[in-house]
Amino acid sequence: MLNVALPKGRLGEKVYAMFEKAGFPCPAIKENSRKLIFENEEIGIRYFWVKPSDVAIYVEHGAADIGIAGKDILLEYTPDIYELLDLDIGKCRMCVCAKKGFRDNTQKTLKVATKFTNITKNYYAKMGRDIDIIHLNGSIELAPILNLSDVIVDIVETGTTLKENNLEPVETIVPISARLIANKSSFKFKGDKIEKIVSALKMQMEDKND
């Protein structure tokens, strides 16, 4: 039985469709129920929905053999896993954003609000910039407006939320997309099945690009 952790939400549904097309369907998943686990015993696959930011944890601890996680989560938590495939979906950017017309005053310590503490730390450490990190769990866009911070580091997809709050991206730290990850131990013992999925997904992506 191969355990697959899917991120709850639109991205997860898209990924499931890819798995289904690859020959790993589980019809029960489409019934609108509150169940979290779905199993297709015949082909030996079990899907479950988890919070997107938790996928890497399930995979690292082996509760899931493989999973789909955003590159942002992988950079933030640096789990010890195999990163087998860039699925080229769920694309967005990790950005430094600020109020429109913001000018960085390099004479003082920069105050940065973010959910992604490690990514932020690494990014500014590379530049040698002294910063104060303010860890927030949501509505990060509020921070510069209320002068809680000078800038924020967050994921930007379309930029609409930023625009509506009179903010703009200043700098792109890294592009983000969804990745297929695998537990290192599971890869040793269920490698054949995992590889079958990887190559099937790869083929779908190539077809799409042609």
Partner: peptide, 9 residues
């Protein structure tokens, strides 16, 4: 070394 059922080396 890995053992089936243990999540890391």
């Amino acid at each position: 070394g890995f053992i089936n059922g243990i999540s890391s080396g």
